[in-house]
Design a protein around this nucleic acid. Sequence first.
DNA 1: AGTCATGTTGACGA
DNA 2: CTCGTCAACATGAC
Length: 242
Amino acid sequence: MPEGPSIIIAKEKMAEFIGYKVIAAAGNAKIDMPRLEDKKLLDIKTWGKHLLLCFEGFTIRVHFLLFGTYRINETKEALLRLGLTFSNGEINIYTAAVKVLEGDINSHYNWSADVMHPQWNEKAAIEKLTDKPDMMICDALLEQDIFSGVGNIIKNEVLYRVYVHPESRTGNIPEKKLKEIADQARKYSFDFLKWKNEGTLKKHWLAHTKKNCSRCDLPMYKEYTGTKKRRSFFCTNCQELY
DNA sequence: AGTCATGTTGACGA
DNA sequence: CTCGTCAACATGAC
């Protein structure tokens, strides 16, 4: 569920409620529920893995973490975290972190850090990488302040696409390669979105969960790399360690 | 049936 | 103060 592209899909599915007022708000989220009633949903935005339901003067931030799910116009057998009823239907959210952000949403987010946002700034991301030369690229790709929206699947697929070993230190990676990584972080996210919408995402994985390299057929390494210790799938024959 | 995972935060101790 | 480690959250795929 939770990488950036999946949140874009959630936004698109919930867009039908924009312009409608909340009739009822329910669930065990620790927010001021009565405050939501009779408020019009003005817009839905995303910043990386954050889903942002914008109201006048405040925004509900939803983060699905690892297990979060949602249903549109239906419910499921689980504890309801946040349910919003509109005159034209309802949104039900489960197992998510829900928080209210006060004031102008633009004051809370730097949109240029979001790899899928129109304002994505690749140059700024590369500068952040060169500022942290000792960081492993597997950790850097998961840094939401640098590559907002990138998750572990995208990390593995991007590094495989650009032939870079996940344990490479950013300071050792040539500038041209860093640009390729940043470029592919965005490109792969949009491929992910397309394939997820088609229901063919897993079919298109070349590295993530793979036993053998799709290029040279040697066994893939599966290791928990970097300070974040997240699963990395890589081919030491095809991916260079810088 | 048990293990593990597309994620993040906060507590605690060194 | 900063770093590393761990628990917590709680569901679904294999």
